[in-house]
Structures are given as C-alpha cells and as structure tokens.
C-alpha cells in the first residue's frame, strides 16, 4: 500500500546492464514507453508550456503580468502567506511525524504494519470526505469549538482561517513525512547510540549528536515533499479557508474561472512552479551532501 509514496527502486541496475540474449526484444521494449510519453507530452507538457508562455504574452508580450503581480498589492501578500503556511505545515508535520517514524523502527513487524496502515488512512480516504469532516469539526459549535469551550476558552472557530486550513493539511500530509523519515531511520545503526552512551554521552546528547544528524536526509526529503505539495492545495483552502485570507491556489482559480485571466494566473502558476523546482533542486544537493556525511559516519 505504500507504493504511491515510496520511492522507486533503481531498476536501471536490473534492466540496463543485464546480459543481452534478447537483444531484438530489448530494442522493441523501448517502443512501449511511447504511448504514455505521447499522452504526457500532449496533455501535460504542452498545457504547462502553454500556461507559462501565456504568462509572458497574454494580453501583451513582455513581463507585464509579472510586474502587475508585484504591484497589485494582493499577489505578493498571498504568495508570502502561502509560503509561510507551507513552512508551518511542514514543520508541524515533522514534529508529529518524527516520534511516529522513530517508533516504527522500534516495534515488531506486526506493530509496524499496523502503524503503516494507520498513517496511510488519510491518504486512502476520499479527499472530499476528509475536507467535509474538517468542515464539521472546525465550524462554530463544532467538536473543536465545543472542546475548547468546555475548558473555558470560547470562540475557537478554525473554519474560515489559515490555521483551520493548516490543521487539515497537517493530517493529510503526515504520510508524506512519515514514510521518507521511516525509510531514512530504518538504515540507522542503533548500536551507534549505544556506543555514544557507553562513551559517556547522556541519552539526549547521544540522540542530538548521533541519531538526529543521521536522520537529517529523511527529514529534508520529507520536509521538501510536504512543502511542495501544500503549495498546490486548492480544495482545502477553498473549503476551510476564507477569501479574505486566500492562498495562492485560490487566487489562481479565481483569476481563471471568474476573470478568465490566463496571463495573470499563468504568472502566479509559473512562480509556484519555480519555487517547487527550486526546492527540489536545493534538497537534491543537500540530500546528497547528507548521504555522503552519513556514509562517512557509518564507515568510521
């Protein structure tokens, strides 16, 4: 069940370098990728390229859409709000997921299976059902409001606010944090912790100086994944947030569906895409750095 989020194993090793008794078949196999590639080129790459192109040409050629984005007073605020929300959601998800993933490495196989199923549940369950559930919980007089009222804090209505959106996002994003964390932690040699404590390090220091640095590659990939995915969320902010405090996906949707302003929406989309690619690029450099340090430490 972990297939959609687990990273693909390196198949190149089995397919590319094998012996070549079936050379003609191998050449034929190459054609198998054509239909899917063609579909993606026509219905994915071309539309994306078209949106980017329109951001520079619609309504007039030039950087008009981008300067408008800087000066309209709304777009930059919304973009910053989206990025900050993404960072906060990623951070909260990390804090919740870290002990969970750590525990997964310490329990038996049955416990681990159970924990995997539980963490994947939000991923399985219908997106609309999930958002509807949060809508009920967060509304005035909902369960969250009632719970806080019971302890004397009144008027905790998360519905229609950025925190309300963030809470729901954290729930959905947990699998995307837990799984990379777990696959990173699984490879950490537990004896290193014993070695550190036997050398006199208190447990917290052994954790902070040995375990935490070794788990950083998983932390980074989980954090980046969650951050990137939250940037594109539309349904959750549209249902649980408010138009006054909208996130960038809502702004893009409004520009397209209400104003048919593909140029302006395209500019915002291009910025979003650029941030995504930048985050991926940065993390790919850091993850490599970390994995080399990891090797250095474990070989010592």
């Amino acid at each position: 069940m972990s297939a959609p989020t687990a990273s693909a194993p390196p198949v190149a090793a089995t397919g590319g370098a094998g012996p070549a008794p079936a050379r003609p078949r191998r050449r034929m196999a190459g054609w198998f990728i054509l239909p899917a590639t063609a579909l993606l080129l026509v219905f994915f790459c071309y539309p994306l390229a078209f949106v980017i192109w329109r951001s520079f040409t619609d309504p007039s050629a030039g950087l008009g859409n981008y300067t408008a984005l800087l000066h309209d007073g709304v777009s930059t605020t919304v973009l910053v709000r989206t990025l900050v929300t993404g960072l906060i959601v990623s951070a909260c998800t990390l804090v919740i997921a870290y002990p969970y993933a750590y525990t997964m490495t310490r329990v038996g196989p049955r416990g681990r299976n159970l924990m995997t199923v539980v963490v994947l549940l939000p991923f399985w369950t219908s997106m609309m059902a999930r958002n509807f559930a949060w809508y009920m919980l967060e509304q005035r007089g909902g369960l969250i409001d009632d719970a806080f009222s019971a302890v004397g804090i009144h008027g905790v209505v998360l519905l229609g606010s950025v925190p309300g959106v963030a809470v729901a996002m954290v729930q959905v994003m947990l699998p995307f944090m837990v799984l990379p964390l777990y696959s990173g932690m699984e490879g950490i040699d537990k004896r290193l912790l014993d070695a550190a404590t036997s050398l006199g390090a208190p447990r917290w220091r052994a954790f902070a100086r040995v375990y935490l640095p070794l788990s950083l590659p998983g932390v980074l990939s989980g954090f980046t994944l969650v951050f990137i995915l939250t940037l594109g969320f539309y349904v959750t902010p549209a249902l649980l947030g408010s138009p006054q405090e909208s996130l960038v996906a809502q702004l893009i949707a409004t520009q397209v569906s209400k104003l048919l302003d593909f140029g302006g929406a395209g500019a915002l989309g291009t910025v979003l895409l650029a941030v995504t690619l930048l985050a991926l690029f940065v993390v790919s450099r850091f993850a490599n750095l970390s994995s080399t340090t990891e090797k250095a430490v474990t070989n010592d």
Partner: peptide, 29 residues
C-alpha cells in the same frame, strides 16, 4: 525496465512529474 536507451532518467522523471507539479497549476493548464 527492459529497454536500454539514453534519456531513460528523463522519461522516468516525466512519468512522475504530474505528482510533483502543484495540483492547481496542472488543473489550470
């Protein structure tokens, strides 16, 4: 898996791209 040709990595990334590109951007495009 079976064919050896150049640019396989690029094709693989292309196949995964719809998951990475922000959902709203895909929808609008």
């Amino acid at each position: 898996n079976r064919a050896g040709f150049r640019g396989r990595g690029a094709i693989r990334s292309l196949m995964m791209a719809p998951l990475i590109v922000p959902g709203i951007v895909v929808a609008v495009a």
